[in-house]
Amino acid sequence: MTELPTNKAPSIIRRSSPLKLIAENLTIDRGGRRVFQDLSFTLESGTALVVTGANGIGKSSLLRTLAGLVSLAGGAMHVEGGEDDRPLAEYAHYFGHQNAVKPALTALENLVFWQSFIASVRIDAFAGAAVPPEEALATLGIGHTAQLPAGYLSAGQTRRLALARLLVTPRPVWLMDEPTSALDTASEAQLLGLMNDHLGSGGMIVTATHTELALSNTRVLHLRAAEPVRTLTEELDA
């Protein structure tokens, strides 16, 4: 916040320093109910944070909070090592339960729209590059559907089309809520490959999942109910 913008030496050094996602004392209320309180963690470049916990514990809420879709009742979150004053949500891709695919548009049209609509993040610390839409579809094994209306795609194909969105616009943080749902074993392996590539190029992943994911560099954030009503939080150590 106190840095002077651009062409000053400290700023340039800071920019090439590794990315870090910092969440401090996150507290959220939804529908008049406290979901969690004082949740803090730090996530470094190239690391995945796997959020586990029972149903209804607030995994999805946590991801939506990080995506800026749920307003914070307290706490702060930001990305260190990126551009100043850019909210976390604009560094992040949100891959939720909904696919945001329009059945009336072709697969390619869907993807091309998202590529031009979502602002990409270009910073030194993140090596992810924009994949051309056709190539992204081919990578995910749905290249043959490019000119078909997305309404004709199967559930798994639609899910992969939604996933292609993450490839065509580079953003360092992937927020993935149950990413393996509606995917078969082969696609799941492919998804894991993509996620590992993303981590390899300096990206970060926060994912909520019930299944074990074989990711290269993971840490686990386990959400569980506190016994008393007042809550305790431990800092996640490295």
């Binding site: 008049g32 796997v50 569980r224």
Partner: peptide, 28 residues
């Protein structure tokens, strides 16, 4: 009225396991 609503919500969430807090633990 809102207090009653909040109390009912709390009563409902007490019945199902866990909503209140989050703890973090390291892995690997």
């Amino acid at each position: 009225r809102r207090r009653v609503r909040a109390m009912r919500l709390r009563a409902a969430s007490a019945a199902q396991p866990g909503t209140a807090a989050a703890t973090a633990q390291p892995a690997e």
